[in-house]
Amino acid sequence: MGWIERIAGPRLSLVVMHQALIERAKLGDRDAFDDLARSAGDRCMAIACRILRDTDLAEDAVQASLITAWRELRSLRDADRWEPWLHRILVNACYAEARRRRRWSSAIRMLPVEVASGRDEILTVHDRDQLERAFRRLTVEQRAVLVLHHYVGLPVPEVADRLGIPLGTAKSRIHHATIALRASLEADARVPSQERTA
């Protein structure tokens, strides 16, 4: 155990280490940035995958955002804002990937479903299919707010702050996206069971 951990505890020591890495990376230390990227990469991949619904596009978006983060790191004034700052770059990269590739409606490679064994299964295969279809019909901006709100767990004001959009816009996007997803589930509930299996 290091001196920081002995004095401040593991969580604070992690924050201090993170800030130290950012300061070193700002001075051009590529190894420090590599460590930062590896600590943030999985989280970024999870967000990008959920927004883009395509593993290849998500990898490209994360790669582009990490390179942009390296290039622009000196403009990050507050090291505590590293994660929100990186996530905003990531979401912008997702927008760019989505528009560049235009593969929403014809995506061949579906997001792999990884369901932990033994978990309480609340989604049926049909729910998953309906939600996937409805989600793909949303705009990429609506997907982003949904992912940050429902998956990352950010309150709506923080979603707006992180995306750089007015609070009303964030609320509106979440509202309309949620209505669309709910409608897909409710429409499904109205379909007779024999039609579902046809």
Binding site: M45, T55, E114, I122, L123, R128, H150, L185
Partner: peptide, 18 residues
């Protein structure tokens, strides 16, 4: 079934490793 819970469950699935 709670739609919000279903949406949460739907978004919790998927790749998380870069």
């Amino acid at each position: 079934r709670d739609p919000n819970r279903l949406i949460d469950a739907f978004l919790s699935e998927g790749q998380t490793d870069l």
